[in-house]
């Protein structure tokens, strides 16, 4: 049976690991590490905001991880062109994560899917509640700063049509909140597409993972709050999920 995945998301600024709260850097938990044997997959995002920034420090970190982590690595941050994606693959990524680049130029998804296959393209969608869309959810790009006028369901469907193999949905309001995933948002997106959906932002305890799968319809639950995840905590989280009837890899 296919297992639900527990994915660790690592964000980097100028090659330095940190976590975020409400999309702002929070460096308190930099000195942590990933249990590279229990985690099912790792997402590494370069959130350096300067578009002209030198990304070499980030590439180096990816290469180091790729050497030691024998699980899939999805890599993203600032990908605007097929060449950017190629570069991320060359330093050790197995998949690339696109967000703002795909909002600006949706055909980017197709270009990467044609070169590497759909399974290599994760469309990351940041969404928050918005008055602009009748109090529904709206997709935001550019580090959640730019309203796009699109609903997450529509954008996810369009992303799938263009060739995205997975959708990663992030609730802007839940980022760093530890209040649990926005289950309504997760369900909305998982109902909209037939590709796997990864849920992100808000997980504060292990119960939230179970809810994400059962109520949010998520194939994979992501967490960025790495201070929960030292040494054995990923393994314990998965044992908890299994006890609650979620198939996981122990």
């Amino acid at each position: 049976m296919l297992r639900n995945r527990l994915i660790t998301v690592l964000t980097f600024n100028d090659g330095t690991l940190f976590r975020t709260k409400l999309f702002e850097p929070d460096y308190r938990y930099t000195h942590n590490f990933v249990d590279s044997w229990s985690v099912d997959e790792i997402v590494m995002l370069d959130v350096t905001r300067d578009p002209m920034a030198d990304r070499r420090a980030f590439y180096d970190v990816v290469t180091q991880f790729a050497r030691e982590c024998f699980v899939p690595l999805a890599v993203g941050g600032g990908i605007r062109t097929l060449d950017d994606a190629r570069r991320m693959m060359a330093v050790g990524g197995d998949k690339v994560v696109v967000n703002t680049g795909a909002v600006e130029r949706p055909e980017l998804i197709t270009e990467i899917a044609e070169a590497y296959g759909s399974q290599c393209v994760v469309l990351s969608i940041d969404a928050r509640k918005s008055d602009a869309l009748d109090g529904g959810y709206e997709v935001f790009s550019h580090f959640a700063g730019n309203p796009t006028g699109m609903t997450p369901g529509d954008w996810a469907r369009e992303g799938e049509r263009l060739g995205a193999g997975e959708i990663m949905i992030t609730s802007v309001e839940r980022d760093g909140s530890l209040q649990g995933y926005d289950l309504t948002l997760c369900r909305l997106v998982s109902n909209a597409v037939s590709v796997p959906v990864l849920g992100m932002a808000g997980a504060g305890n292990w119960k939230h993972f179970v809810e994400g799968v059962e109520q949010g319809g998520l194939s994979a639950v992501c967490t960025q709050n790495i201070y929960h995840f030292t040494e054995t905590s990923i393994a314990s989280a998965k044992k908890f999920m299994e006890k609650k009837g979620i198939p996981v890899r122990l």
Binding site: M1, L2, R3, N4, R5, D40, E41, S118, Q119, G165, E166, S194, V195, P196, S219, A220, R249
Partner: peptide
């Protein structure tokens, strides 16, 4: 069931004597 099939799944060894499976338990993920 969603497609693509992404993630960890069990491998059933239909020919367990294949050398690839030396030291690999049946139903490994």
């Amino acid at each position: 069931l969603r497609v693509p099939h992404v993630g960890w799944n069990d491998l059933t060894q239909t020919r367990p004597d294949c050398i690839l499976f030396d030291g690999v338990a049946d139903q490994s993920l």
